[in-house]
Amino acid sequence: MDSTIKFTANGERRSVTTDSERALLDVLREDLGLTGAKYGCGERECGACSVLVDGRRAFSWRTPVSKVVGKTVVRVEGLGSGEKLHPVQEAFLAEGAFQCGYCTAGMIIAAVGMLAENPKPTDAQIVAGMDRNICRCCAYPDILRAVRRCAGRNRGAEVRP
């Protein structure tokens, strides 16, 4: 059944008339042309479809669009302001924390969500916080460095433990 669904996406009010069972990911991508969040598995195992719903990470492929009525959805495209990158985006870029980059949107969102709760995570906390996201290129060491950099813990190359 079609219904009109209103939510905020990156500061803009959005209204979509559609079947309320559709996945948030599909509505973002197909109806709103926002393709930053990706499909990776459809089973909450990879994190590629991550977005922030009211500041918390959600897997948008498994979130029916009806669940975000009245809520605020933040996707990777909307993190920065204009040409200015969000610090987590800056860190990923500075560390070159991607290879193909397909997982990157989900990784950045996961990191933003995690850092909002814990701005100074230890390595073990980063691993625990990010472990639901898969990077098949296995850029994990670089991503780890990027997140550490956001936490102000390292800059570029680092020393062995």
Partner: peptide, 20 residues
């Protein structure tokens, strides 16, 4: 660095599955 790295972190790069 990867020439289109900025597009990647901004979610602006269109992968084959993003083409519309």
């Amino acid at each position: 660095a990867r020439p289109n790295g900025r597009d990647i972190v901004m979610g602006a790069h269109h992968y084959p599955s993003d083409v519309s």
